[in-house]
Structure formats: structure tokens, C-alpha cells
Design a protein around this nucleic acid. Structure first.
Lengths: 167, 167
DNA sequence: TTAAACTTTCAATAATTTTTGAAAATTAAA
DNA sequence: TTTAATTTTCAAAAATTATTGAAAGTTTAA
């Protein structure tokens, strides 16, 4: 396998993985492209490399910026914008964990709390609903604490957690 | 909020969460329904509760069974099948982590290994591709070990990991 | 066997999500 | 200012994914 093939394979694998995790293909592929690029790229370059439209590129680059994964770079004397992604995998994992926690886990915790707080009318089905949503709420809270710990733990948190778990 | 409302809210929240994580809505909702049910349900009952077709119910129940989250129960003297889900949240989390690891992380690890093993032709871009995919490969391997540990660690692994991480 | 009860399959359709591309908006140099 | 470069927006189209429902398949009781 030589460079171009390996590069295409990487971008395509990352794209499918993104899809599997609720991230759209273009967004994942743009990030993948920047991740292995030796320099910041322009919209034109991204469009050409991935064969996607200007609108698609613009929208997805902006989403990546919202996620805090991609940064805009301005070059002196140039009109156009250059984009680069976080290159450190640990930091990338941290940012993604933090964002998914904030966007997804937090709202679910809130809803589970509301549901598990309904009035117990004494029926079996109400008791079961309360019991099960409470159990999920507790699990989500614990997972949340774990993530928050990990998120604030800048250096190599996956390995750290692993080392500690092994002991 | 009284029972029916809370129940609908739970099923709907679980359905949206599933969608966000690449699981289809019907599959997530069937699991949610069984999760708060006081007894095993038939296809007819699932169809009626969730207002979905027979085909949809059949396909998604089967997928849940493939995932190891739902079990078929046969009642003596009855033709029809009853379905129930794993009720213990810790065990549920374990099964899901195990399946996602097997189905998603493993194939990516394999691809990353292949890509990061290409011949270094000395160019900067090849060096960058190798370096970055290696870093991802290492991260994925570490995450994988962590998951495998967690998966084999039947009791309350999220809390256990948290407790150890806090120390 | 046959027939009824039940489940699965799958082509067609519907719903949802993504992508396009051109017009509108923005920005900054002339 | 005006103009040209660049980015953003968004309605329409394309692509993907989910759902339906009826026919085919399976199982068990009579």
C-alpha cells in the first residue's frame, strides 16, 4: 500500500466510523483530512480533495469549529481562511468526550431525573418505571462523573484510567 | 407528571438517544418499552404500544436479540413468543460496551494498523500519515484494553473505574 | 396430513438526512 | 465608495435509512 491509497483508506474509514456514531460523513472526512495534513488547508483544497461542494464544506467546517476540534488560521496578506485540526489524539479524545457529555448525556440525565421523580401511585407498573429510570439515572450520573474526571485530566486519561483499573 | 406521560417521555427520550448513537429509533424504543415493563411482551403488544408495523417489530426485536440485550421467552401452552430485556443497568452497559467494541472498535484497530504500517518513503506527508494513524491506533488499543477489562469486570464497572480514577 | 397461529422476509414506499449549487451576504483591497 | 474575493445560506435534489404490509415461510395442534 502506498501513500495515496493509505490516505484514501484512512479518510474513508474515518468517514464510516463517524456515520456509525451519529456524525455525518463529510464532517468526519474533513477532520480526517486535516488530521493527516502537514499544513492548514483552504476550503478550495478540502473541496478538491474530498470532492464535495462548497456549501457542504462550509457547513461542516463550521460544525467542527463549534465542536472545538478545528481552528481557523489567517495568513498575513491572504484573504482566504485556512483550517487545521487538533493534532494530539489525547486532546482530541478529551474534547469529543466533553462535547458529547455536554450535548447528550446531560440532557438525558435531566429527563431521567424528572421521570424517576413522578408520584408513586402504588401500582406495580409505576414502581417499575421509577425503579428502572432511577437505576439509569444513577448509571448516567456515575458515567458523567467519570467523564468529567477524565476531561479535566489532560494527560493521557485513557491510559491512566486503564492503569488504575488493572491494579 | 403521571404514569402514562412519564412512560411516553421515557420511550421517546430513549428513542432519540438511540438515533444519536447510530441505533434506530424503533430498536431503542422497543428496548425502552421492555425495560420498564413488569412482564415479557408479545409482538402484538409491542406493535400496539409503539404503533409500529409487524415487520418493523420483528426485525428490530431480532436485532436486539443479536445484540444479546433481549431474550425470547416461551410460555407453556402458548404459541406466541414473549420478549424481555436485560433489567440490570450495569449488565446492560456491559453488553453494549462489549458489542460496540467487537463490532466497531476492532475493525478500526485493524485498519489503522494496516495504514500505519505502510512503507515510509521519506516524504513529510507519509511520515505525518504514519505518525498520526499510529497515535490513533495506540489510543484505540488502550481504549480497547480498558473496555475489555471493564467487560470482564461484571460488578458495577463504571463506579469501580470512577473510584479508582479519583484516587 | 391439514389448517390455523404465528413469524419472517422483502420490495415498495415513506421519512429523514445529506449534499448541492447558485444567490445573498460579508469582507477587505483598490 | 466600488469591486472582487470569499464565505454563508438555504431551497431543491439526491442519497440514505426506516417502515410498511402482504406474501411466503414455519411451527404446532388437531
Amino acid at each position: 500500500m502506498e501513500y495515496q491509497e493509505a490516505k484514501d483508506e484512512f479518510i474513508s474509514t474515518w468517514g464510516s466510523l463517524g456515520t456509525l456514531w451519529g456524525i455525518n460523513k463529510a464532517m468526519a472526512q474533513i477532520q480526517a483530512l486535516l488530521f493527516i495534513s502537514t499544513r492548514a488547508l483552504t476550503t478550495e483544497e478540502i473541496m478538491a480533495e474530498l470532492q464535495i461542494s462548497r456549501g457542504n464544506t462550509s457547513m461542516n467546517v463550521r460544525q467542527l469549529i463549534d465542536w472545538g476540534i478545528v481552528k481557523k488560521e489567517l495568513k498575513a496578506g491572504e484573504r482566504k481562511e485556512y483550517f487545521s485540526t487538533e493534532k494530539d489524539v489525547q486532546e482530541l479524545a478529551r474534547i469529543i468526550a466533553e462535547e458529547r457529555n455536554r450535548r447528550e448525556i446531560q440532557p438525558v440525565i435531566k429527563t431521567l431525573k424528572e421521570i424517576s421523580s413522578i408520584q408513586d401511585d402504588g401500582t406495580e407498573k409505576t414502581k417499575e418505571l421509577i425503579k428502572q429510570t432511577k437505576a439509569l439515572h444513577d448509571l448516567a450520573k456515575t458515567a458523567d462523573s467519570l467523564l468529567v474526571k477524565a476531561i479535566n485530566h489532560k494527560q493521557n486519561w485513557v491510559s491512566t484510567a486503564l492503569l488504575k483499573l488493572i491494579k
